[in-house]
Design a protein around this nucleic acid. Structure first.
Lengths: 198, 198
DNA sequence: TAAATAATCTAACACTGTTAAGCAAAGTTA
DNA sequence: TAACTTTGCTTAACAGTGTTAGATTATTTA
């Protein structure tokens, strides 16, 4: 009787173990090192066993993504509960989002498709720099002389870059949003930041 | 005499062909489908030949990244040349950046490590939605009633998300920037957008 | 104890990046 | 012209990947 429950509990446990082993491997060696055989090794089984719990590797990644979103939602609820003013709440929520991204870096990566793969973007090659410098210089030019410190230019530069790159990569990973909305957000952000500079 | 030059030119040509074949494959089937053997097939050689032009697969990706930055820099110079007012120039530069990202989607992906790998973020699962809704609702709450249209909330929501996600993913791929600067940009952006809402 | 079922593993397939060995044509030298 | 060297390219292999089918072992049931 109860043995059935025990078995079910055990099955559930190895399912959890698979996920835990996966995230552990990723934390140790990065996403590109995650393989079915390595997971199997860690849970002391052979690879085909995993397919009785997940239909394929993507299913594991999907489940980790789901767990990531659940965790994030919980953190946001906490953030809300710690303030009463809505504006403060919103700010705390975004801060929670930010902190989550770095506290659970690996989860954030699989949730939002950041880097994961290839070449590590090591590229500090000169060509990478050119574009940056062009933008940086132009921003510096616009900022009135009395405000023009390196720090200030840096801040504005990163703000620009973040909003534009963010909008782009959000659009690339989930392609739902309308072009109208994108252009709107983009224009708003650009003109907003520009006007804030002077 | 001249035959040496011809041969060198041919060598250069197959180098170019390798890069062209690579980007063609990626455009047809995505980054995860890019393999050495497929490239070799396309240039009508066998795989080991590629290693006489590039030390490994990463080197190909690096070269494509470099080419991407060169292209982007050129587009930005054009953007500058088409305006005289610095603010307009800067705006045109960011628009050029934006347009480049979608015109040369594959290059942008390898340049900035967007998605590339895995599971395509298909995830329209409910858990994904929860976080979004929490933020969306809170934003809606803050916006004064007279401005509160769905479009307006959407715009603000995406602006928020873009700047935060952008800042995060920039930090994850190139980990140079200081925490000070990050917090500064983040706080500035959040409070800036919040104050712009009401 | 024997049959049936569940749990697990081995072996294999078709791929991946990468390297070493070999072949055949071309160029160089005697 | 004959022998030698270099070049261009291929085949074969290694170790790894995700995934599946079949065999094997262990457990439960009759």
């Amino acid at each position: 009787m109860a043995s059935k429950e025990r078995i079910l509990r055990l099955k559930d446990e190895t399912r959890t173990n698979i996920l835990a082993a996966s995230i552990a491997i990723v934390k140790e060696e990065g996403w590109q090192a995650l393989s079915m055989r390595k997971i199997a090794d860690k849970i002391e089984y052979t690879a085909p066993i995993i397919y009785e719990y997940f239909s394929n590797k993507d299913a594991i990644l999907n489940e980790l993504t789901r767990e990531g979103f659940v965790k994030l939602a919980k953190l946001m609820e906490i953030a809300i509960s710690e303030h009463s003013d809505p504006a403060k709440q919103l700010e705390a929520m975004w801060l929670a989002y930010w902190n989550f991204a770095f506290a659970e870096k690996e989860l954030y990566q699989v949730m939002y498709g950041v880097e994961m793969n290839c070449c590590a973007m090591a590229n500090t090659c000169s060509d990478t720099q050119i574009t940056m410098n062009m933008l940086w210089d132009k921003i510096e030019e616009i900022i009135p002389a009395e405000k023009r410190t390196e720090e200030y230019v840096d801040t504005k530069y990163y703000t620009f870059w973040s909003v534009v790159h963010g909008l782009i990569s959000i659009n690339m990973t989930r392609k739902s949003t309308s072009d109208e909305l994108n252009k709107q957000v983009l224009k708003d952000a650009i003109t907003g930041i520009i006007s804030s500079m002077r």
